[in-house]
């Protein structure tokens, strides 16, 4: 792979995601940040199983040659499914928060306890 671009992308995605979670004030943007981290981790998993010039791991109709490792793909699929569930839950909670507070600014909804 040229210059390990996928790994650089992984690091970039995770760091951008963390930046969004920590420094963005809008709750929706924080949720986007979390999905960015998740994409970074998923990309990392997929990249681990990839070999240059490899084909999809379908054993029954293989033309021969190197196959990509299927296990990381299975892991990624599971992780994506979990990610969707988490995303749906987070967004529904954001909707509830907006109904209660009328704002999505993270500094206004938090506030120290009594």
């Amino acid at each position: 792979m040229i210059f390990n671009i996928p790994f650089i992308a992984v690091a970039a995605l995770i760091l951008i995601g963390l930046y969004a979670v920590i420094f963005k004030r809008n709750l929706i943007k924080m949720v986007i940040g979390i999905t960015l981290i998740e994409s970074g981790v998923n990309l990392f998993l997929i990249t681990l199983g990839y070999r240059e010039g490899s084909i999809a791991p379908i054993y029954t109709s293989s033309p021969g040659g190197i196959m990509a490792l299927p296990v990381p793909q299975a892991l990624t699929l599971t992780s994506i499914v979990i990610g969707v569930a988490v995303l749906a839950l987070m967004l529904s909670l954001v909707i509830h928060i907006y109904r209660h507070y009328g704002t999505l600014d993270v500094r206004k909804i938090g506030g120290p306890e009594e």
């Binding site: 963390l18 979670v21 920590i22 420094f23 963005k24 004030r25 924080m30 993270v106 500094r107 938090g110 506030g111 120290p112 306890e113």
Partner: peptide, 17 residues
């Protein structure tokens, strides 16, 4: 201590980092 507990979820993530 009270100042540390801002109740802001971004700060919680910052502490993790």
């Amino acid at each position: 201590l009270k100042k540390m507990h801002t109740g802001n979820v971004s700060d919680y993530a910052l502490w993790f980092v």
